[in-house]
Design a protein around this nucleic acid. Structure first.
Length: 852
RNA sequence: GCGGGUGUGGCGGAAUGGUAGACGCGACAGACUCAAACUCUGUUUCCGCAAGGAGUGUCGGUUCGAGUCCGACCAUCCGUACCA
């Protein structure tokens, strides 16, 4: 008597797939192609359940599409540059390169047993010189195309990681990795001109119909388009060179209610004043210091400083407004200067109240009358209001119209113009770090910034570096740093900054189409494989990675590395949920929290304890994280149950976009089910071939229905529903009294339908039931339409909307006949209790509703 | 604040405006067993002995019919934030 032994069969079939080269992606002009990609992992050293879920989803899609006759590209690589490698080197010694490649080897070993249908021949790591050399080549192309530039900028400086961070990498004023409070520092940096494409990146979101609405919305908010008026105040007593003060507003219709002008502490005018006035300098310093945590910003008081300067109101030069420096005005949005209209802006209202500035209403609720305001009146722009002090005509109109009128007036009078502004700013890519892609330029005292020659690429990272001092080891590596100028040949210095790792991940998906090419991409390969038909990854990348990738695809099109159709590189996006687990906590004798692994706690009715009986606090589920120890190691699951169980479990029960709670009992139950399937297959295989059962047609119909439903569910990313159908089909097969041939056919279909989820078990069953070749290569089953229709259907009968009975009728029976049968039904007669029937609704094939 | 999502049994969750709770977990009962585990069979929304009644966060509306559509509210989660 044999048994289901995943440990043996999984190895066996993985070798069989490898030998047959089933997953090697090949350009086949005769087939439609399908490119499925899961966001590639950072090689942290161990895979976790989230990886298993992510890659299994992609694998289900890849295997399904392959069965459907597509030429599938399903590659894998490593997002291998980044700070953890350097941090590890600093903390524990060793070299980032060794650490990274070591981790890659370990993680690959952990992924292999999952039986993923990945074309490993295309694998690369972003820290491979062959990869980042091509990235440098593209950087030079982008430089030439004017898509990259240098400028001095105030940057977010992470004092712990000793590097610059992008705005997006600052969370609540703290570095997203180090958690350190971010400082402001002025440095000359490289920037990608992403803001030049802001409008395109925004409007193209509309075309991404197979992206989650949520992601498109988050990107739209991030790009932050606004339309408004930019105009100049004439200053009265300002220093030389500041005769005008440019301000930007999205509410020019409230200009009539202006009671002050405000500038940022970083505004050039504020800086000029600070040079001569110590009080202003001190105030500006105070503003810059301001708190950076979420709480501090929320509760931060609005503070201001009256500069004593005044500006003339553009509509009435006799009116002069005071100029204040205020802590809530940002230098890098708009012009760094505003006018304040306290009547219709919460922030300006608070400020005006604090400093006793006039509060002048511009409009009132439609039909209302002017009255003193105790709070600002801020209706929706689409709402109609009565203008009482409008710059462009009084009367009732929407805010939107008022704004348009005000812009028109400003343009007519020549003091301002309508402009569109974006919140999105250029992408600073310089990092003062070693473990990243070197920026391939040389600084020459004579020629300035000189691009490295392409034939000298890659500019490879030197291996002989040390991390015993803070800062960038490239800065203190003379033989690497000191080079002749590529242009004039005299002594020069390499750029020692490396690129933000988001650059690496912004084009890796194009590189998979020709991973060994000596150019960044090969047009013919890119043209065949691009775009990514289905991209799968975490919602945490909704803004940064996806926006940068969209930008890069455009830039690669401009520089001739991608076809125009790939300007939007991801046709469909799916964001999967996390795998979560409860957290088990105790405290040590000093009151500090101590966390425990799930396998170290014992669950009893009385509560949760450790082995020694100490009771454990249970904290509700959260994303699995090493520091909280609420992790389940996939390797343990695979070792004890096999990969198919792990794969089936992470796909079952919950919709894939939702978080799932890992439960040991769930994994156990999954394993039992797969054993049942195996045992069933064993039983069917050993049936005498001439056995004739009585339930053949019934079983064939059930199989046909399952084919339709599983297909539909996989197409719709409803893997949990596909699995529910497969449970049902297994139960039906187990109970059916069918002929040996029909039962074996049914088992083979079950194997094929399970193949995307549990590929090893599927091959085993396929082989047991005499399937030809590999299950992975068998074409996806099709349902015979004749088996999908029933001659007799069961219809529920409702009386006043409540179900009271059901009847079986021939499929094509006329509605009038159905009505008669329904009204004659004994339960219907009973419930009607002699009441007259007012109306009867027959929805063919669905339901009958009797209204009494 | 603003934007978005989600609320269905003990639990995860199903349900083109048409039989609410598919499927799974757990629980309970039975069979097998000397016994236990495994396995198999059955029951399992709630109240009720039953007939029957109630029921998808709350309140209202549209409809022959609402978990599903509309309005208001409550709860909860996520994103985002001094953006002029």
């Amino acid at each position: 008597m044999s048994r289901y032994e995943p440990g043996q069969i999984e190895k066996k079939w993985q070798s069989a797939w490898d030998e047959a080269g089933v997953f090697t992606a090949k350009i086949d002009p005769a087939k439609p192609k399908y490119y499925v990609l899961e966001m590639f992992p950072y090689p942290s050293g161990r895979i976790h359940m989230g990886h298993v879920r992510n890659y299994t989803m992609g694998d289900v899609v890849a295997r399904y599409k392959s069965s459907c006759g597509f030429s599938v590209l399903h590659p894998m690589g490593w997002d291998a540059f980044g700070m953890p490698a350097e941090n590890a080197a600093m903390e524990r010694g060793g070299h980032p390169k060794d650490w990274t490649y070591g981790n890659i080897a370990v993680m690959k070993d952990q992924m292999k047993p999952l039986g993923l249908s990945i074309d490993w021949s295309r694998e690369f790591a972003t820290c491979d010189p062959e990869y980042y050399g091509q990235q440098q080549s593209m950087f030079l192309d982008m430089l030439e195309a004017g898509l990259v530039y240098r400028k001095a900028a105030v940057v977010n400086w992470d004092p712990v990681d000793m590097t610059v961070l992008a705005n997006e990498q600052v969370e609540n004023g703290r570095g997203w990795r180090s958690g350190a409070l971010v400082e402001r520092k002025e440095l000359t940096q490289w920037f990608f001109k992403i803001s030049a494409m802001a409008d395109d990146l925004l409007s193209s979101l509309d075309g991404l119909e197979n992206w989650p609405e949520k992601v498109r919305l988050m990107q739209a908010n991030w790009i932050g388009k606004s339309q408004g008026l930019q105009f100049a105040f004439e200053t009265v007593n300002a220093p030389e060179g500041f005769e005008k003060l440019e301000v930007y507003t999205t509410r020019p219709d409230t200009l009539g209610g202006a009671s002050f002008a405000g500038i940022s502490a970083d505004h050039p005018l504020a800086k000029a004043l600070a040079e001569k006035n110590e009080a202003i300098a001190a105030f500006a310093a105070e503003c810059r210091k301001g708190g950076t945590t979420a709480e501090e910003i929320e509760t931060a008081e609005k503070i201001g400083f009256d500069t004593g300067l005044r500006v003339r109101h553009p509509l009435d030069p006799s009116v002069e407004l005071p100029v204040w420096i205020a802590n809530f005005i940002l230098m890098d949005y708009g012009t760094g200067a505003i006018f304040g209209c306290p009547g219709h802006d919460q922030r300006d209202f608070e400020f005006a109240t604090k400093y006793s500035l006039p509060i002048i209403p511009v409009f009132v609720a439609e039909g209302g009358v002017e009255a003193p305001l105790s709070e600002p009146f801020v209706p929706m722009k689409s709402e109609r209001v009565t203008y009482i002090r409008n710059v462009a005509g009084a009367g009732v109109k929407t805010g939107e119209q008022g704004i348009l009128d005000a812009i028109a007036l400003a343009e007519e009078k020549g003091f301002g113009e309508g402009v569109t502004k974006f919140r999105l700013r250029d992408w600073g890519l310089s990092r003062q770090r070693y473990w990243g892609c070197p920026i391939p330029v040389v600084h020459c005292p004579t020629c300035g910034v000189v691009p490295e020659k392409k034939e000298n690429l890659p500019v490879e990272l030197p291996y002989d570096v040390s991390f015993d001092k803070p800062g960038n080891p490239l800065d203190r590596h003379p033989t690497w740093r000191d080079v002749p100028c590529p242009k004039c040949g005299q002594a020069a210095k390499r750029e020692t900054d490396t690129m933000d790792t988001f650059v690496d991940s912004s084009w890796y998906f194009t590189r998979f189409t020709a991973p060994r090419a000596t150019t960044p991409t090969v047009m013919s390969d890119a043209d065949y494989w691009m775009n990514v038909d289905q991209y799968i990854g975490g919602i945490e990348h909704a803004i940064l990675h996806l926006l940068y990738s969209r930008y890069f695809a455009r830039a690669m099109n401009v520089t001739g590395h991608l076809p125009a159709k790939s300007r939007e590189p991801f046709d469909a996006l799916f964001t999967q949920g996390m795998v979560t687990h409860e957290i088990y906590k105790t405290t040590d004798d000093k009151g500090r929290p101590v966390y425990h692994l799930p396998e170290d706690v014992i669950r009893q009715d009385s509560g949760v304890t450790l082995a020694d009986g100490r009771s454990v606090e249970v904290i509700p589920s959260a994303k699995m994280s090493k520091s909280k120890k609420n992790v389940v190691d996939p390797m343990n699951i695979i070792a004890s149950y096999g990969a198919d169980t792990a794969r089936w479990f992470v796909m079952s029960d919950s919709p894939p976009e939702r978080d799932i709670e890992w439960t040991a009992s769930g994994a156990d139950a999954t394993s039992k089910h797969l054993t049942r399937v195996w045992t069933l297959s064993d039983r069917v295989a050993s049936m005498p071939s001439d056995y004739a059962g009585t339930g053949d047609l019934e079983l064939q119909k059930a199989v046909a229905r399952a084919v339709v439903e599983v297909t539909k569910s996989i197409e719709g990313f409803a893997f949990n529903k596909a699995i529910a159908v497969l449970y049902g089909l297994t139960n039906t097969l187990a109970k059916a009294d069918a002929s040996a041939l029909v039962a074996r056919d049914g088992m083979r279909v079950l194997a094929q339908l399970m193949q995307p989820m549990t590929p090893h078990l599927a091959e085993e069953i396929w082989a047991m039931q005499g399937g030809e070749g590999l299950c992975a290569r068998a074409p996806w089953p099709k349902a015979d339409p004749a088996l999908l229709v029933d001659d007799v259907i069961t219809l529920p009968i409702q009386i006043n909307g409540k179900k009271r009975a059901e009847i079986s009728v021939p499929k094509d029976l006329a509605s009038s006949e159905v009505e008669k049968l329904a009204l004659a039904h004994e339960d219907v007669v009973k419930f009607l209790g002699g009441n007259a029937v007012k109306k009867i609704i027959v929805v063919p094939g669905r339901i009958i509703n009797v209204v009494a």
